[in-house]
Nucleic acid binder design. Structure first.
Lengths: 106, 106
DNA sequence: ACTATTTTTGTCAAAATATGACAAGTCCTA
DNA sequence: TAGGACTTGTCATATTTTGACAAAAATAGT
């Protein structure tokens, strides 16, 4: 999956022959905002992932994976993080996880 | 570097024998808030990175690398992103970079 | 070309979140 | 036990995100 999460939603929507307005209604969302989400101008809201999974009969975990990798990719691009630095970040994350620092309040 | 960015600052500060109050003043910051930052209870503000670099005579790019890998590590932990998914995210980022999607408004 | 429908864009108030500031607390250490 | 160093809690303000609506632009059907 190389598309953005927004493009992915659009793909699913078109496959099912739904309009923005129709899908937006199912997601309890304004169609204008769903349009922005599909076009990457706004974030899709994580809290609507399960609804989305049900509508398109997709495994929620796979959908969530699509979502978090999309978010992370955005973060990587925004910070101009190189592969090498990404490795460092990964190491830091792993280190902190095993040292239970992930439970810190923040 | 396996420590958090906050712990890193604390390390630098101690090395130089500065108190929270002293360093906070140099950074134009409340000492209580700097304490929270060192303890990972608040984010260090990116806009103060260059000041920090000057104070401790550190290369700004290296410091920034420390910072963004810390931020990314936090993101990885928060989303429970596995190594495998991190690879996917990396691929997505690379794909979008080469396709100039990084310039999208968002 | 005309009309209806779909999609996009812009804007704005309200909700959510982050930041700066200060008070009061604890913890050292002499 | 006094003083300095550090931590914690709170709150008003600032910033960012979200939901909503209007209106413009694009698309399709006739």
């Amino acid at each position: 999956m190389k598309t953005t999460f927004g493009e992915y939603i659009r793909l699913l929507r078109k496959e099912k022959g739904l309009t923005l307005t129709q899908l937006a209604a199912m997601l309890d969302l304004d169609s204008a905002n769903l349009s922005k989400m599909e076009n990457g101008k706004r974030d899709f809201d994580e809290k609507r992932l399960s609804k989305l999974a049900k509508i398109f009969n997709i495994n929620i975990n796979e959908l969530r994976d699509e979502y978090i990798t999309d978010q992370l990719a955005k973060h990587i691009i925004k910070t101009k993080c190189t592969k090498q630095l990404l490795k460092v970040a990964e190491q830091k994350a792993e280190y902190r996880r095993t040292h239970h620092k992930s439970l810190q309040t923040q």
